[in-house]
Design a protein around this nucleic acid. Structure first.
Lengths: 219, 219
DNA sequence: GGTGTTTTAGATCAGATGATCAAAAACTGA
DNA sequence: TCAGTTTTTGATCATCTGATCTAAAACACC
């Protein structure tokens, strides 16, 4: 009983995510957003509210398509160590394969949002906490089954993995160097007695062309 | 042979640092900068050039007053393990003691600056690399003297410490929680066979008043 | 005291920014 | 067909943005 939308919500949110991801919240103007979303400024505001609200929607869309899905997928791994190592491997590979050094939108945003916006901070922190919890669950599981040897308290081991992952995501933006990112992940796994990083998904043929600048494929 | 300046360069740069540190580069307007520096917009531009140039000066001023000095101080420690543990302790303590959750200006900036500004990125990366090098030198020294037991390759151990530190600085901005930050640092030191975190500098009396919001004392 | 040089001060510029408005367009159910 | 609802559109608003201009002020040197 009303005029139907002419845009695909997921598609336009993808576009918004890409702008925020590449440039950050402040550096992205509403006009630029509207243009990349292929809609009018007024249409965008009508559909998503103001810039801040749109940002939150975009962030949520991003998280649904990457982080949350990713945690669930790896947590289903047969062993706790494989879950952790697989998750780290994928994080490193995403960081290196981006070609645009975007890093992680969640981490980027966590640093850009100021304490003057406590709502947004709480939202970001809650999302970060799901990563920490994932590591904690894995460590607990592995210690209980005897798969993971003793070491630092499980909470601390999880905190170390968590902090290391955040660091890797920071470096993904300034220096996406394989030796650096893999080295950090490798050392974290090794010194906690976890399995080594699995091989990158498939560095085989067909990649001889520099593949390079991908969009933002989820998975 | 000309009219002398009425402002103290260090003082006004301190003010600029504080704005960029708290709000980030994009979210800080030139007018706001000028006001907090107690100078006119025109005077500011005359003395420091455009916003980007001023930012770089401010960043350099910040680094001189904190990171660089800090690395030199800890590197003079009697043992490599103490140097690393002391540096981490100070990073954690700064993160927790800020009261304004500013984190680290260098890390904040590393995420805000886009790959579209390669000069700035190179500058930031070079500065980050001094941290990595510090860790690497310490690890090498400690391994050679036998103080630090075998473990991951020295480069990888340094990379892990480096990434963990960056992660801790990210968390300093969103969740400056002692258990979290200390836990990550503790686990990193423990699992690399390094000495434990030293006690916080002095949690003694006189701190019963919430001390709280400090400015930006260097040291 | 005059000259040269730099800093300061206030006004101002051109353009960008986030957001809204009124009106036309497109659909659904009665 | 028409009433009701929502989307779309282009124009527009008030404000902010980074930066510059002109002219007065403050010193050092001669």
């Amino acid at each position: 009983m009303a005029r139907p939308r002419t845009f695909d919500e997921k598609a336009v949110l993808d576009a918004a995510v890409d702008r925020f991801w590449t440039q950050g919240y402040e550096a992205t103007s509403t006009r630029e957003l509207a243009q990349s979303m292929h809609m009018t400024l007024a249409s965008m505001h009508n559909a998503f509210g103001d810039k801040r609200t749109l940002f939150r929607r975009a962030l949520d869309h991003y998280l649904d398509g990457s982080l949350r899905r990713r945690i669930a997928r790896h947590e289903a791994a047969p062993s706790a160590g494989v879950a952790i190592a697989g998750f780290l491997r994928e994080s490193v590979e995403r960081s290196l394969g981006d070609g645009r050094q975007r890093g992680c939108l969640l981490v980027n945003s966590a640093l850009e949002v100021t304490p003057a916006d406590p709502d947004m901070q709480a939202f970001l922190d809650a999302e970060l906490m799901t990563i920490e919890s994932f590591f904690r669950r894995c460590i607990a599981r592995g210690r209980q089954s005897g798969e993971i040897p003793d070491g630092p308290a499980p909470e601390d081991a999880a905190r170390l993995l968590f902090a290391s992952l955040l660091g890797i995501r920071v470096l993904a933006r300034v220096r996406p160097d394989r030796d650096l990112l893999e080295g950090a992940a490798r050392a974290a796994l090794a010194c906690l007695g976890l399995p080594a990083l699995p091989a990158p998904h498939s560095p085989d043929a067909a990649a001889s062309t520099g593949s390079a600048a991908n969009g933002n494929t989820a998975s």
